[in-house]
Amino acid sequence: MATVIPGRRRRAERGYPLFLVPAAVLFVAVIAIPFGMNIGISFTRWQGVGPVQWVGLRNYQRLLHDSVFWASFWHNAGIVVAMAVVPTALGLVVAAGLFDFIGKRFGPRTASLLRACIYLPQVMPLAVMGVVWGWILAPRDGVLNVVLQDVGLGSLSHDWLGDPNTALYTVMAILVWIQLGFPVVVFMAGLQRVDPALHEAAAIDGASWRRRFWHITVPQMRPEFYVVLLMCTIAALKAFAPIYVLTRGGPGDSTDIPSYYAYQNFFEKTQVGYGAAIATVLTVLTLIVTTAFLVVQSRHQGEEE
């Protein structure tokens, strides 16, 4: 056996790299070159047609002093709360409740039916979810305002997306609704991994459901927790579709986010160089967030071992 393997490995090694050629060609053409071009464009002043003027770091300097960009940055922080922080926290409670309470008391069928309902918005295109909520929240004859008037709460009816004071919070609430299903499904799958003996032992010792949640479920869900939080945060940085469909960044720029601001500069204001600078910052931000997560995650795993 030992004499066969080295020869096999060497001969095999020769054939395999060829299988990477199609991916390599396509990746260079579709990802690497455009990515490099975007960085290059961010150092220029360019309208998309005509002459390209090299301006060095001037777009980035402008970015630092652009109040719209900073506002969009903070709006995106709000979107991260709505798409990552709240759904992850809430999702863990919902998943634990469904898995070890509803599932055990009322049967796994009930639990998976409820899970399917909660997951439903996740399979829809974000743009379509935007259409649905834009329709529900229509200022004059939308469902929400009509219902509020019908139940005598007419004073609460409001142009939710049209008022700069409420627009961002309304978008955030919609995003929580959209995103919740993803953590619930991942956590419920993860909970099947937890050894039931842990819960049983704790229950025999008289630990309440709440204490078992904190001391058993939460620590056991650590791997899922990182993955969910990371994937939701990255999704939140790319929340272009709901913003486009719901508010187009408005009213004013009260719901603008860097992703949409870059689009506006590319295709509406034709300030391509400036748009490229925004897109580059967004890319760097995404990579920093990812690296930070991976570092923290591997450090925690290291502690456990």
Binding site: V30, I31, I33, P34, F35, M37, N38, I41, G48, I234, L237, K238, F240, P258, S259, A262, Y263, F266, V272, G275, A276, I278, A279, T280, L282, T283, T286, L287, T290
Partner: peptide
């Protein structure tokens, strides 16, 4: 992971 915003204009 790259945001598509960073590729969209060159593409």
């Amino acid at each position: 992971l790259l945001p598509q915003e960073g590729l969209v204009y060159p593409l």
